[in-house]
Design a protein around this nucleic acid. Sequence first.
DNA 1: ATACAAATAT
DNA 2: GATATTTGTA
Length: 263
Amino acid sequence: MEDQWEMGLPLPEDLTPISQSLISPGLALAFGITPDNTRAQFDLNLHDNCSTYSPSEENLESLSLRLFSGRSDFDCSNRMRRGDSFVNDEVNSGSKDDGDENGLNRAVKRPRLVWTPQLHKRFVDVIEHLGIDKAVPKTIMEMMNVEGLTRENVASHLQKYRLYLKRMEGLSSEGQSNPRRDTPMFDCDGFGSMTMPHPHPPPPQQQQQCNSLPLMPMPMVVPPPGAAYGFGHLGLPLPSSSPSGYCGLESGAYNMFWNRQRG
DNA sequence: ATACAAATAT
DNA sequence: GATATTTGTA
């Protein structure tokens, strides 16, 4: 059962290697995984400010491996730090591909991250396995192990996620016979946890016994182009689950999922 | 100096 | 509304 997730995944040699690991050796050890082939290969669905990029082409797979045009070492280094005011400590200044036409070392803007259901699912999985007390942005980011994902990406998402949890909490304690109780309109990957969050925090898990988790080694399965996506929340028919178990939206956020009822 | 959470901005 | 950025604080 524990190796079932591997079925249908691309072979290691089919995957483009990624230059940088976001998981610490300690975490990797704690999870009993080998750092080489376990990095998340998420399509981060990054949107440029100017052009919205839709990964519906056959180039999806290659796009999913790196963030933006040719660089994977983006990291947080292009952001201003508090106190001082450096713009961009980008190393290869003077090159023409840094988006700077004038030779000035301008800050390069990181595209906006879109939290796809896949990404969000991993986020939730990590949180649930960490326990609320240990679920802080940095740890979550490390355990998610998604290339290019920053701590502030996670922090921002976490802030909203906590808001969501609070809403649900107040909701469940409010009216017991509440008709508005979330019926899971779908239980596909990534959605169920959003529509039906755990009412109670999962039992605190110890790091040492976490190696049984199917959490880490889970490269994203890219659906074939033109595949029917899960629009169950819109009342559209769900595709019969594919053998690989893929079920989700390839592009676009899950947005409307957690904005159910509002006060 | 760093990371967090909350507040605010885009 | 979603995500980013700033602000206050531990």
